[in-house]
Amino acid sequence: MSLKSRTAVVTGSTSGIGLAIARAYAREGANVVINGFGDAADIEKERLGIEDEFGVKAFYSAADLSKADEAFNLVVEAEKTFGSVDILVNNAGVQFVSPVEEFPVEKWNLIIALNLSAAFHTIRAAVPGMKQRKFGRIINTASAHALVASPFKSAYVAAKHGIAGLTKTVALETATFGITANAIAPGYVWTPLVEKQIPDTAKARGLTEEQVKKDVLLAAQPTKEFVTVDEVAALALFLASDEARSITGTVIPVDGGWTAA
Rank of each mutant, 00 (worst) to 15 (best):
L239D: 09
F72W: 14
N140L: 06
Q132W: 14
E243S: 13
E101I: 09
I123H: 00
W190T: 06
F120C: 11
K213M: 11
A63T: 07
G16T: 07
G16V: 04
D242K: 13
S5K: 15
W190H: 10
L48Y: 12
N35R: 04
G36I: 02
S13Q: 02
L88E: 02
T259S: 08
V97W: 14
I34V: 13
W108H: 10
I112C: 12
Y156D: 00
I179M: 03
A183C: 01
P222C: 02
A260L: 15
V32S: 11
E51N: 10
V127S: 04
D215I: 08
K134G: 10
V75H: 01
A158M: 08
D242Y: 08
I198D: 01
D42S: 14
T14D: 09
T169E: 03
T250K: 15
N73L: 08
Q221F: 06
I179V: 07
H145L: 10
A118V: 02
I17N: 12
E195C: 05
M1F: 10
L147S: 05
E70W: 04
D230E: 15
L19A: 10
K196I: 13
K67A: 12
I111P: 03
L74D: 00
R47M: 09
A261T: 15
I123Q: 02
A26H: 01
P104F: 06
K131A: 06
S117T: 15
M130I: 01
K134P: 04
F54G: 09
L116T: 04
A68H: 07
K203P: 09
V100D: 06
A158H: 01
S117D: 12
A40M: 02
E28L: 12
S143I: 00
I21C: 10
E231G: 13
L110W: 09
R27M: 10
Q221I: 07
K131M: 14
A175D: 15
R23K: 14
K214M: 06
T81Q: 08
A185N: 14
G83C: 10
T167Y: 06
L74F: 05
K57H: 15
A183Y: 00
V100A: 13
V56C: 09
E53I: 10
G256P: 03
A113D: 15
P199H: 04
H161W: 12
L172N: 12
A20V: 07
N73E: 12
P192S: 07
A219C: 06
A142L: 02
R245A: 09
S84E: 12
E70Q: 11
A24N: 14
E106V: 11
I87Q: 01
E210T: 11
T180N: 02
